[in-house]
């Protein structure tokens, strides 16, 4: 997926709030999401559209309802690409330090 779309979608407080709402309760309808958002239905629809284009949410039709689910896969890719590798370096340093200190004790 397009990384730019993911970062752009996240660069907005309302869209991050929508993701938080879905994290708390996955699989909500537009109506349910509007109840907890202080904005017009039309704006919520627009924000959801951008989140869906970035693949950060997916939708499933169940009967007449359209349910929105958070899709954390692109976030995980951001984590693996931009965060995990830096953490690993730090964890390796800690690991080496621990070994070094323990070696000195014996």
């Amino acid at each position: 997926m397009d990384d730019d779309k993911v970062f752009k979608a996240l660069a907005d407080a309302s869209r991050r709030m929508l993701l938080d709402r879905l994290c708390e309760r996955n699989g909500q309808t537009l109506g349910q999401l509007c109840e907890t958002m202080d904005m017009k239905r039309q704006s919520v629809t627009q924000h959801l559209g951008l989140l869906e284009q970035a693949n950060l949410i997916s939708t499933v039709r169940r009967g007449r309802e359209k349910l929105h689910f958070i899709n954390p896969v692109p976030l995980y890719e951001v984590y693996a690409r931009w965060i995990r590798k830096f953490e690993e370096e730090r964890l390796n340093l800690l690991h080496d330090l621990k070994q070094e200190l323990e070696r000195k004790q014996t």
Partner: peptide, 9 residues
């Protein structure tokens, strides 16, 4: 009832 939907391309 709990469910998750994951999508990847």
């Amino acid at each position: 009832s709990a469910s998750f939907v994951y999508v990847t391309y």
